[in-house]
């Protein structure tokens, strides 16, 4: 009896994995169909890096290091943070639109959990983006500044793990913000603020550039773990920093996932869709 039950649950789990796997695959293929968007993102990624290259060259005019970062490390830091930024999901806007125009109603009676569906869909999109931007980013980094000094290829899988965790942490955080559309007509301002905090606390500048008190404050917030964590370890890997960054990423991802599920459950109960 107990054996049957565990066999059943195994079969159900396998079916679920297959179902969400198919969603990831479909999203992956859909993303590839919109070549123009990729072209824009890739070109803009190169442009943004070019601007930062010029800016940091002007700042590092006299050589040396700033906050422990050489010019070479700083440019590679930007390559990685911008790579993550350009590979992120646009889940906030799609959730906002679906909730506000009532299209979410069509998803409620489908045989999947809405948040899991969004995650699977997002993973497909982020997957293809990170592959393209990753390869292109490495090419741009080599072109702009040359190889990253002191980088060991052995650490690459760990850096990739942190980059993926950063993307997922960011995904769940903006999912929470997008789901506030259940109650708020205009919630974009919250997204802007979240986005800019992430940008300031890691995307543009490493945390080491901040004054001491701000460094301490930043490191307890989730924002630096999206961009700063992976990029910091890529340019100067250390096991002492790796474990805390990994655990905080996982902790915040879990927290935002639970929060998203709670907001969704509460939001769906208060949903009113008129017409069709």
């Amino acid at each position: 009896m107990s054996l049957n039950r565990s066999w059943d649950s195994l079969v159900i789990t396998r079916l679920k994995i297959r179902k969400y796997g198919l969603i990831i695959g479909t999203s992956f293929q859909n993303s590839l169909a919109y070549g123009a968007n990729f072209l824009f993102d890739t070109f803009f990624y190169a442009f943004v890096l070019f601007i930062f290259l010029q800016l940091w060259r002007a700042i590092y005019g006299h050589g040396g290091a700033i906050a422990g970062y050489s010019l070479n490390q700083m440019i590679w830091y930007c390559v990685i943070t911008e790579m993550i930024a350009f590979s992120g999901s646009n889940i906030f806007y799609s959730l906002n639109e679906e909730i506000k125009n009532g299209n979410i109603a069509y998803a409620l009676n489908k045989p999947y959990h809405y948040i899991s569906y969004q995650l699977a869909n997002g993973l497909g999109l982020m997957g293809i983006k990170i592959i393209i931007n990753g390869l292109f980013g490495v090419f741009l980094g080599l072109l702009y500044i040359g190889p990253l000094n002191g980088f060991h290829v052995n650490y690459l899988p760990l850096i990739i793990l942190l980059v993926c965790n950063g993307l997922i942490l960011n995904f769940f955080a903006i999912t929470c913000l997008g789901l506030t559309a259940f109650w708020l007509e205009e919630n974009t301002a919250f997204f802007w603020i979240y986005q800019k905090l992430s940008f300031m606390l890691g995307l543009f500048l490493p945390v080491e550039f901040f004054p001491g008190w701000l460094q301490k404050l930043a490191l307890v917030l989730p924002f630096p773990y999206v961009f700063y964590g992976p990029a910091r370890l890529a340019v100067a890997f250390s096991w002492e920093k790796f474990w805390p960054i990994l655990w905080v990423q996982l902790g915040y991802s879990g927290l935002f996932l639970v929060l998203a599920l709670l907001i969704y459950r509460k939001g769906v109960k208060s949903l009113h869709v008129n017409g069709g």
Binding site: E186, T188, A189, F190, W192, I193, Q195, K196, L197, F199, M200
Partner: peptide
């Protein structure tokens, strides 16, 4: 909300 949000956004 949009006006103050954008101003705050830029202030960053």
């Amino acid at each position: 909300l949009q006006v103050f949000g954008m101003a705050l956004n830029n202030s960053a």
